[in-house]
């Protein structure tokens, strides 16, 4: 029940925001936050719930952007069809690398996914005839329904955020179900989960494929919003950024994933005055959060709440 109150509040805020924020530039920033949120929500299922790290999700994001972008520019397919194709391509790829990759744990899993991401990045840079290589390609058409084109920032804002809300509802339902518990049990102890009848290998695969497909859809949104793609957007730094968003928000909390996307997605705006040196601040924030609050902001909130209740309860008893 509590979820529905939070959810209703969230929907009202999201829907109302463009009426307050009128500057198209800021609306644009919020579109990116929405795109990031799609990825971080699905990544938090993988990382925070199932406990499997991926430092290669920018690859799926990129595959989505390139698949949909190329289909629209080269084959003149509708972006909507491109979006579906992007999800399928990423899902199939995730399934095929998932078998060996998901057998690995911890550092090995991190390195393997980082390596995978780097290979995709090199591939996007090297296939110059197809993808334009390092300089990328442009003139990607926008989404449209009949004559209605999602051409301005506000329209696209609603498209992205409605998708986020749908994803959020689905994911919230899943995590509060037998499947959500199964995922968390993998994080807790794979051995115990197994003997309690959870097919851990299958669940890890399902959530990996799901998060790849969702990231790919986010990539397709990116391509048809910016109308230009180049490999630099999808490098290892982006993968790390995405994982950091999930962790900063609090990784076993879907709301935290959105919060992380909001904070780090808008951070460059605050750091504008620092120019190129935002990377320093970004690194420092990441280090401090990991050292002092590895549970993320959701963890801090929970701790504060506990403390608050802890001081209240004895007083009420007395």
């Amino acid at each position: 029940m509590k979820h529905y109150i939070s959810l209703a509040f969230f929907i009202v805020v999201v829907m109302g925001l463009p009426m307050i924020v009128r500057n198209p530039y800021y609306v644009g920033t919020l579109v990116f936050v929405g795109i990031y949120s799609l990825i971080t929500i699905s990544l938090s299922l993988l990382l925070g719930y199932a406990g499997q790290i991926s430092l290669g999700h920018a690859a799926f994001y990129g595959i989505g952007a390139y698949t949909s972008g190329l289909l629209a520019t080269r084959c003149h397919l509708s972006p909507w069809i491109g979006l579906v194709c992007a999800a399928v391509v990423a899902g199939v790829l995730a399934y095929s690398i998932g078998r060996p990759v998901l057998k690995l744990r911890g550092h090995y899993l991190a390195m393997a996914t980082l390596g995978f991401g780097e290979i995709v990045y090199i591939f996007l840079n090297s296939t110059v005839e197809l993808t334009g290589g390092p300089s990328g390609f442009g003139q990607i058409p926008r989404f449209a329904v009949g004559a209605f084109s999602f051409k301005n920032d506000t329209r696209f804002y609603y498209l992205v955020w409605v998708t986020v809300i749908i994803l959020l509802v689905l994911v919230l339902n899943v995590i509060n179900s037998r499947i959500g518990r199964a995922l968390r049990s993998i994080h807790g102890s794979e051995t115990a989960a197994n003997t309690m009848g959870v097919n851990t290998a299958s669940y890890k695969m399902q959530v990996f494929v799901f998060s790849a497909a969702v990231s790919s859809i986010a990539g397709a949104y990116y391509a048809h919003y910016v109308t230009f793609v180049s490999p630099a957007t999808f490098d290892a730094n982006t993968s790390i950024l995405l994982v950091t968003m999930v962790i900063i928000g609090g990784m076993s909390n879907v709301w935290g994933a959105i919060l992380g996307a909001l904070l780090l997605g808008t951070l460059p705006e605050y750091l504008r005055t620092f120019g190129d040196y935002d990377i320093l601040i970004y690194g420092a924030i990441m280090l401090i959060i990991m050292m002092f609050a590895p549970e993320g902001l959701a963890g801090i909130a929970a701790a504060v709440k506990r403390k608050f209740e802890g001081t209240l309860v004895p007083r009420a008893a007395a």
Partner: peptide, 16 residues
């Protein structure tokens, strides 16, 4: 509740 996992069978779509 996790213990009930193997005695129940609703798939992802049903719960989502």
């Amino acid at each position: 509740m996790l213990g009930r996992h193997c005695r129940t069978g609703c798939g992802v779509l049903n719960v989502a």
